[in-house]
């Protein structure tokens, strides 16, 4: 098995000093794979993702990128190293146009104007709807279109790692399917995708490796094959999470 692109190891994270959200959690993610993180509400899934991006200080443990310890690195430095984050809640600048939102997405290389233009044009080529609406304020767009802006903004960095927190929450099923296809394509293009999702079935379908968290701890993990129909791990997760997976 290849070495992980990004990993958290024995990470403990607490809010307000004493409310422990993650307790010695370890997750590894590899290039060309979707690493899914599932678990019930309060399991610490989103906290784990924020920890990958450096939004929360560690009480113990470490975060590595390409084998290098980046535990003390700030989020802007991680973004500069090609780690992109699409959070669960809208992270756009509502009154700015699509173009301005994308321009700000190029912040870490903003002085290289040619690269900024080239990257934004590449995003427009990938998501033509954004080119059509480039001058519109993002607040005037639908939820799905706003998600495209967020995905496009994340891709501007040409990330090696992309962190996705509930990317299809609040989206219509048809649009959601489109996004799952898109997420899978990121991994197929060689990116390391770390996906937090409440939709266990969909997450299991597109993930190469799944981590299950419970009450801030590692509960289980396994490859996609280990989650196939009739597998013990799948039955265990279904029973434990009280989910009807199919």
């Amino acid at each position: 098995m290849s070495s992980p692109t990004m990993a958290i190891k024995d990470v403990t994270v607490a809010y307000h000093g004493d409310i422990t959200i993650l307790n010695k959690v370890s997750i590894e993610a590899r290039a060309g794979q979707v690493t899914g993180i599932i678990g019930p509400n309060g399991a610490g899934k989103s906290t784990a993702l924020k920890t990958f991006f450096g939004l929360l200080p560690l009480r113990s443990g470490s975060v590595t990128l390409h084998g290098r310890d980046i535990s003390r690195q700030k989020p802007h430095d991680r973004a500069g190293e090609g780690v992109a984050f699409v959070p669960q809640h809208r992270s756009l600048f509502a009154d700015l146009s699509v173009e301005d939102n994308l321009v700000l997405g190029c912040w870490v290389f903003r002085h290289d104007k040619a690269r900024v233009r080239r990257r934004i044009d590449a995003i427009y080529d990938r998501f033509p709807i954004l080119r059509d609406k480039r001058n519109d304020p993002v607040s005037s767009m639908s939820g799905g279109q706003q998600r495209f802006v967020e995905f496009g903004r994340a891709l501007l960095l040409e990330p090696s790692v992309i962190l996705l927190d509930e990317p299809t929450a609040m989206l219509a099923p048809k649009i959601s399917r489109e996004f799952y296809t898109l997420i899978r394509s990121f991994a197929d293009e060689g990116m390391t995708v770390i996906l937090v999702d409440q939709n266990v079935r969909r997450c299991a379908e597109i993930s190469d490796h799944l981590y299950i968290l419970e009450l801030g701890r590692n509960k289980a993990d396994g490859s996609r094959e280990q989650f196939q129909e009739g597998s013990a791990l799948r039955d265990m997760v279904a029973a434990w999470m009280d989910y009807k997976i199919d």
Binding site: V86, P87, S91
Partner: peptide, 8 residues
């Protein structure tokens, strides 16, 4: 919160 995400 969102400005941190774009590396600012």
């Amino acid at each position: 919160d969102a400005v941190r995400i774009v590396g600012i």
